[in-house]
Design a binder for these strands. Structure first.
Lengths: 158, 158
DNA sequence: CATGATTAATTCATTATTCAACTTTCACGG
DNA sequence: CCGTGAAAGTTGAATAATGAATTAATCATG
């Protein structure tokens, strides 16, 4: 690590920006979770459903799903087990690589997705998207993109 | 809830902004957690330390601490128990309201804070602050502030 | 000044996450 | 081919988070 003497403290502006970002992240996740609760889904459940429903044949390899949802393999494995028990997803083995498994969206999972998605979108709009002007949203995306890239490049095995 | 027919789907721009925000939140928290790990602290630990070290007499009521860290009372209670076992914090009873308790920073907690803070600040700079121009950071803060307010106003008891 | 409602905080049970250890399969250099 | 190392995934134990129920003190008011 660097020695501390050459690290400037955060200015007031910086502190406020940082705190605000933190607060928004956390409050937003909480709110989305609340809004999903009536449908018996968590944010994590929902994200899995999104990824699978957008995928070819509504199926993805466990590894790929772990990567795209930014979860550890272990966590994903448990998560899929729970969703399997809930009937939303099933595991199917992979012919081309016998180590591998697919997570596949069941019909019930697909139906759930179609039913819940509009409400979730409404929630995202209400608590995030619609609170920006289109220009601000675009500016947000533009300035956040390099941060995402930076972080993706640094992330280890999770 | 609103019926679904009147909720417009997210545009491409919106989707990208939204996904980017999500990714940054998660990746960032992960990275900060990693950077804190060598010092034996979690993000949660650190935030408690910050709040206490900035407070009058380095102490706060459990409720206030829960509010300012956006955690449930239950979760905070567990968190403080762990930190108490780690010697960073202690509980002290409150004279003016005998239901109440203070969480108080111990000397060890204070020392830990002084030792770790520069590294954490460096980490926040490296992975977030310094990746924006000052103008972008200010724009970020400005556009995120109403979102934070909106969400704070809606949050229930956690 | 009694009592019903509220607030502060914890506890207990359930569920989720983490981390390391493990199994199976694949890839490929000798 | 054979063996060694890496990759895909799971498992299990330990730790953390959640939510409902609980205890205890305070507040408000008739």
């Amino acid at each position: 690590m660097t020695t501390d003497s050459d690290t400037p403290w955060l200015t007031d502006q910086e502190q406020r920006a940082w705190r605000t970002h933190l607060d928004v992240s956390r409050l937003l996740m909480h709110q989305l979770e609340r809004d999903l609760q009536p449908f018996g889904l968590t944010n994590n459940d929902y994200e899995i459903l999104v990824n699978l429903s957008e995928a070819e044949d509504r199926r993805l390899r466990m590894s790929d799903l772990a990567t795209s949802t930014l979860q550890s393999k272990s966590r994903l494995s448990h998560q899929i087990t729970r969703m399997e028990n809930a009937g939303l997803v099933r595991r199917e083995s992979c012919e081309s690589d016998r180590r591998g498994l697919y997570a596949v969206l069941t019909d019930e999972g697909w139906d759930t997705m179609r039913r819940v998605a509009p409400h979730h979108v409404a929630s995202v709009r209400k608590h995030f998207i619609d609170l920006f002007t289109p220009e601000d949203l675009e500016a947000l995306r533009t300035s956040l993109t390099p941060v995402a890239e930076h972080l993706r490049s640094k992330r280890g095995s999770l």
